[in-house]
């Protein structure tokens, strides 16, 4: 156990020290992206691992990003207040959609389709309110001069790297916390058999709502961070069905039953997208998603536990194939 803590300490120190030693801006940029998306994918898998397959997380991410940016631009509300408000909004949206779903046993296919529609609708709302949100052309939070803590705007990549690292680590801590909590046992029982879980005294609706709320709020935070970092958001990059599917895809590729699975998924998918973008240049439009799609299908058919999940399983059970 001690050796493990030591190793954890070394890895943490190395990750924190990295931007002070290595300052190549493009590489740092890719790492920030990986950290933010890793956090988003981890947020999804917090509920996804219990069989609650939400395809609505693109919607929560969009709410997180747009509410923060809109409050800043239109009302001058600092992101330090705007982000909590955005998280509240995403949480409220999650409750409004999830409560009837869970209360009335909308599970499996039904739940996936309802949430899928949710992310589609959030995209429609952003597009429809084009006078305020810029519609499908995208939206830019107003810039301050240089770095400003109140505006949560920083010019240097190092600061963003550290912020993203902290949030990503917090995501992992939450993942472990859920993993060790009673909630996990309740949720596992529910995903096995809702009736049996209810009979065993578990408040099925409440447990599912709790985990959904947590997951949605975390996802909205990822959206807000992404917005503050990129200083540009568009409906396609932070909301909608394709973002939802992208989350599921990355989580599945990495492995949804292990803590670092979504992170591995983010590393693979973002490196892939960036690699294709550089490799194909401007011709890459569409190619990265083309390969995404094919890989997703192949992964689900051949490696349903994901890369990291399958690797760990193999390491734990040597000899067994």
């Amino acid at each position: 156990m001690n050796a493990r803590n030591l190793l954890l300490g070394i890895v943490a120190a190395a990750l924190i020290a990295l931007p002070f030693v290595y300052r190549q801006p493009y590489h740092l940029h890719v790492m920030v992206l990986i950290l933010i998306w890793s956090f988003a994918y981890t947020s999804w898998s917090v509920m996804g691992r219990f069989g609650l397959v939400s395809l609505g997380h693109g919607g929560f991410m969009g709410v997180g990003a747009y509410v923060t940016a809109l409050l800043w631009n239109h009302l001058g509300v600092s992101p330090w207040i705007g982000i909590p408000l955005a998280l509240l909004a995403a949480g409220a949206l999650a409750l409004v959609v999830a409560y009837p779903c869970f209360r009335f046993r909308i599970i499996g296919h039904y739940f996936a389709l309802v949430t899928l529609a949710l992310s589609g609708i959030v995209l429609q709302v952003i597009t429809a309110t084009r006078d305020q949100t810029g519609g499908s052309l995208g939206y830019t939070p107003e810039r301050t001069k240089g770095s400003l803590l109140v505006a949560l705007q920083f010019d240097d990549k190092e600061t963003w790297y550290l912020i993203a690292l902290a949030v990503w680590a917090a995501g992992l801590v939450i993942w472990y916390w859920v993993d060790r909590s009673m909630m996990r046992y309740a949720m596992e029982a529910i995903s096995e058999d809702e009736d049996a879980a209810a009979a065993a005294g578990i408040n099925v609706t409440a447990e599912k709502l709790k985990i959904t709320l947590l997951s949605a709020v975390m996802t909205a935070l990822a959206g807000a961070l992404y917005c503050q970092y990129q200083m540009f958001i568009s409906p396609d990059t932070v909301s909608g069905i394709s973002v939802s599917l992208q989350m599921v895809f990355a989580a599945v590729v990495g492995g949804i039953y292990v803590a670092l699975g979504p992170t591995v998924g983010a590393i693979i998918t973002i490196m892939l997208a960036e690699g294709l973008r550089i490799g194909f240049g401007t011709q890459a439009v569409g190619w990265d998603n083309l390969i995404y799609g094919v890989l997703l299908v192949l992964f689900i058919i051949f490696l349903p536990k994901g890369i990291l999940g399958s690797l760990l399983e193999r390491m734990r059970a040597p000899g067994k194939s």
């Binding site: 190619w287 083309l290 094919v294 299908v297």
Partner: peptide
């Protein structure tokens, strides 16, 4: 269901 989501990505791109 997710596999057909992959197909959605594929067809769009």
């Amino acid at each position: 269901l997710l596999a057909t989501g992959g197909v959605l990505f594929f067809l769009q791109s």
